[in-house]
């Protein structure tokens, strides 16, 4: 990817935000790390990218990034989807940091809707872009009430929803943004990652930070913290499996995108994580 340049775009502070704002956000992050899964309100700023397009993740990244970091930005698992490109360019321009598309080379990974297939390490931080931070929002519209429910660990209504799914469909019908219990205390939304990715959050070696810019919340899962997807003991949480493997690299353990290749509806399945796919292909080619 682009070589990091040391200059910053015309007169802006390093990584766009002023130092006071970064300090405010870091304080929120520290509080979030101290209370795993708890949503910390923060005074989200308007950023040059629209709300709903990753401003929360961007503000978190901007507050923790330094000149020696190496940033990877993905959307839907790919580095060259338009919004990932846009965000990466934003940091290249305002922070001049090095960027990469190799998960294993990144110190910070900012992501929308996927966790990389390559396991993360202790020296890495993953920043998730979150649209709706509140896991009970669809059950209870009022913020004042959901805050109380979290304070009282009043999560009964969430289980009622799961019960209903099983009663009606025989299984829980949440396929992404599947709610989790963090550190045995707080109910959390992992952001719209497919439930396939949920197990990666459990006892991850990396620090996981979550930013919701429009809703003005930050939350975190410290390294080696338990993250359990909600389920019933007799209907345990399961992840998706495909009948196919990746048409490019042959992987059968990664999340696959379905691609329609002609007007007769022919389909191909390929790894959503483009870096993972590329690395596997390189290894296969070398053999």
């Amino acid at each position: 990817m682009s070589e990091g340049e040391e200059q910053t775009a015309g007169g802006y502070n390093f990584a766009y935000l002023d130092e006071q704002t970064k300090r405010m956000i870091r304080r929120a992050i520290l509080k979030a790390v101290a209370i795993p899964g708890y949503q910390v309100p923060f005074a989200s700023r308007e950023m040059p990218l629209p709300f709903g397009w990753g401003t929360g993740g961007i503000q978190v990244t901007a507050s923790i990034i330094g000149p020696n970091d190496r940033l990877k930005v993905i959307d839907q698992g790919a580095d060259d989807t338009t919004n990932a490109v846009s965000i990466r360019q934003f940091f290249a321009k305002t922070a001049g940091v090095a960027t990469t598309d190799r998960t294993s080379h990144a110190s910070i990974v900012q992501t929308r809707h996927r966790i990389p297939e390559t396991p993360l390490r202790e020296d890495q931080i993953i920043v998730y872009q979150v649209p709706i931070p509140e896991p009970m929002r669809w059950l209870e519209q009022r913020e004042a009430e959901t805050r109380r429910m979290h304070a009282l660990a009043d999560y009964g209504p969430m289980y009622v929803r799961l019960y209903e799914d099983i009663a009606q469909f025989g299984r829980v019908t949440t396929a992404y943004d599947y709610p989790v219990m963090v550190n045995g205390r707080y109910l959390m939304r992992p952001s719209p990652i497919p439930k396939f990715d949920n197990p990666k959050m459990n006892m991850s070696a990396a620090l996981q930070l979550f930013g919701a810019g429009r809703e003005k919340r930050i939350y975190a899962v410290p390294p080696y913290t338990s993250v359990k997807s909600l389920d019933f003991t007799d209907h345990p949480f399961t992840i998706e499996r495909w009948d196919n493997s990746c048409a490019i690299c042959g992987a059968n353990d990664s999340f696959l995108d379905e691609v329609i290749t002609d007007d007769r509806g022919s389909r191909l399945f390929v790894c959503s994580d483009t870096d993972y796919c590329r690395q596997r292909r390189a290894v296969k080619a070398a053999e």
């Binding site: 009043d154 019960y163 009663a167 019933f232 007799d234």
Partner: peptide, 21 residues
Amino acid sequence: GVSAGANVGERLMAVGARHYG
């Protein structure tokens, strides 16, 4: 809007019942 069974089961789930059956 929620089934009779869920209505009755809610209090149990609220205090930690986790076995659907």
